[in-house]
Design a protein around this nucleic acid. Sequence first.
DNA 1: TCAAATACTCGTAAGTTACTCGTAAGAAAT
DNA 2: ATTTCTTACGAGTAACTTACGAGTATTTGA
Lengths: 205, 205
Amino acid sequence: MEAMKKDLSPKKQRFVEFIQNFTDVNKRAPTFQEIMNGLKIRSLGTVNWYVRELEHSGSLKRSGASNTKRALMIPEQKQNTGSLPLLGLIAAGYPLEAIENRESIEVPLSYAYSENYVLRVKGDSMIDDNIQDGDYVIVRQQASAENGQTVVAFINNEATLKRYYPKPDGIELHPRNPAYTVIRIGAEDEFKIGGVVLAVFRRYE
Amino acid sequence: MEAMKKDLSPKKQRFVEFIQNFTDVNKRAPTFQEIMNGLKIRSLGTVNWYVRELEHSGSLKRSGASNTKRALMIPEQKQNTGSLPLLGLIAAGYPLEAIENRESIEVPLSYAYSENYVLRVKGDSMIDDNIQDGDYVIVRQQASAENGQTVVAFINNEATLKRYYPKPDGIELHPRNPAYTVIRIGAEDEFKIGGVVLAVFRRYE
DNA sequence: TCAAATACTCGTAAGTTACTCGTAAGAAAT
DNA sequence: ATTTCTTACGAGTAACTTACGAGTATTTGA
């Protein structure tokens, strides 16, 4: 039926996240000892307590039988949640900054397709488009764009958000705010479209 | 199958709203102590009194057994559609403008609760907050707010989006952009909170 | 208009839960 | 057969919830 989402205590949550992250980075599950060091716990007993506890509540499983080493794993997450992966941080004029532990961000159902992804805006470099620090941008991954669409553009490995205007004599990128300057892509520039911007999302706390 | 809205006393209502807020912001329920601090109550006994009272009236439940920590929760009816009603147009300094045919707007699942609604921003009156014409604002309906939260405020029947700062000598409303002026609510002003702003959403075409 | 009921508040302390520790024996992997 | 990991146990503590008794504002109603 439904994936039961136990709401875990902060500490248990941190525990699960550590395992998730470790597995992600090292391509294998941590040992109890590694968890202990990583979380600054001073006793294996404590680690064991967490494992039992979380296993019992279904938030943690193991790939092998009992006693198997490095067997801890996070059970599959729910599928149709209407969320997209947060791929990185974008700041105009800088390369995309990847994110360590892959987060996922909930979006309206109509955006929840596999070719879409989310970027988080860092800094106020897009303030002229009324996009501010911390905003999320929903993007559809594609290499081409229509005239006038807002795209994630990579120019010489620097990322930015601009309107796309192909012209006979080259590509123009316009800021949404006409008070700012137009960028013209020259032959010497390396240029790539990272996707089309579908929406901007800002969470107030 | 209708949401049973007990009419609670203002104080009890504020209590419930605080828990809702806290859970929303912190992704976990508050402890009694945290409620105490947040609501400027000076005794755990008082908090406990509220909890018992509200639990008895059905306005509050707990996720675990008795004595479990951080278990307070508002019985909630989540909508399955992932969309919210668009209640009207908001433009700073004008009354809310109702919408003829009630539309509904898709939102991230985590916002799809029955106490939430959506407003559309009309004009550029909120441009200083980086909210522009056509943006959607997701709001949770409630009459109280915490210090510093962004609220939909009605002052003498004019609607606006501001940060809420209750002070000993009256309420202050701050624009998010510090370059603009602070509003002070006087005794002669009619003031009401229409809800707390949870998010802003902008669709690019 | 006064009394009585109701709604809320206080401080403290006892009772539970959630987590922590150290150590050591048992099982798997090399 | 040694090393690397997992499990077991018992005891302790900090973080939280609940109980209790008494008190003060606010509303009701006669």
